[in-house]
Design a protein around this nucleic acid. Sequence first.
DNA 1: ATGCCCCTATTCTATCATGGAATAGGTAAA
DNA 2: TTTACCTATTCCATGATAGAATAGGGGCAT
Lengths: 180, 180
Amino acid sequence: MSTLTPDETILGLIAIQTSHGYELIEAFRDVSALGEIWKMSTSQIYAVLKRLERQGLITGRIEESETAPNRTEYCLTATGKRRLDDWLYDPQPSASIRRVRVEFLSRLYIARQLNIPTIPIVLRQRATCETERDRLRDLLEHQPPGMGYLAHELVLAQLEAVLRWIARCELVPKDIEDIT
Amino acid sequence: MSTLTPDETILGLIAIQTSHGYELIEAFRDVSALGEIWKMSTSQIYAVLKRLERQGLITGRIEESETAPNRTEYCLTATGKRRLDDWLYDPQPSASIRRVRVEFLSRLYIARQLNIPTIPIVLRQRATCETERDRLRDLLEHQPPGMGYLAHELVLAQLEAVLRWIARCELVPKDIEDIT
DNA sequence: ATGCCCCTATTCTATCATGGAATAGGTAAA
DNA sequence: TTTACCTATTCCATGATAGAATAGGGGCAT
């Protein structure tokens, strides 16, 4: 899995409450929710919903309405619940900078909304970032100067910034809990 | 332009020396060149070449060979040269973290190979990152806590890391020149 | 009332990106 | 001799993505 998909995050939102596409779109627009984290187009959300349903992670049923267009309400299947848990409790979350920003924050948001403790998520994220930082430090010691060196230096600097940022999150866990 | 395309970088490589697809693939594989910066598949390079030719930025001519498969050598057109210059001298390079890592380093690499002074490129990149940093600082002062706040805090921390890294690049400009 | 735009809710379409395999002849090692 | 890799490119199927299309209802200003 190398691309950054909103699949699990959407799974999480549906776990919080069964939703139809338009509701999810609004969650991704809402700046106090996921608005600053993901930028997603309308059709992408419906595409993800189709995929999740095809994979048997969610099921939809059509809600008829006379005053408004019909909508399809989706809720998690047992498989979907398991997939979501696997994601939330992933013991080795990616240390990629983008993924930390997007996936880790999404995990935090979803976990909070589901009343799942966020501290373990933070600790695991810190652990993988520390491992990756150490790996990069080693790598830099043996790498000859050049573009690759500069690139790795930058990634290392960013990982260190991530770790300082995570440390601040840890110091004030209450704040994380109180967010949202 | 929101996606991160290798188009201009490939334009740059062709400006350094006329090349065919396979040669470019090797430049992107070579760790001492762009290997650590871009990850690209074979077919993507040929797709980019097709696009650049369709846009009139490069022209290809087939080199026949009996000992090896035919190849198509590409070289820049006048328009292509102008497009490359616009990119190299872009007065407002993106301050997005990914783009700094990928685009800025590519600019640096191409400029060096073309014997164009790299210092102005570095200074312009620093300037836009500083502007963006200031914007984020302002934004954070007025933003209520929440996921958006955390997200912006992280981006700010990463921008600051980028700026420290750029400062190191500036302090030892000779090193940048000597790289590659 | 009339026209117009916005809101809800979703689908459609066309283009682009992507990875992976297919092709195909040559060469070097085992 | 088989195996496997190097050069060089194309093909294909799937997937992502943006943007428009659809469609009925409500509000607001002229």
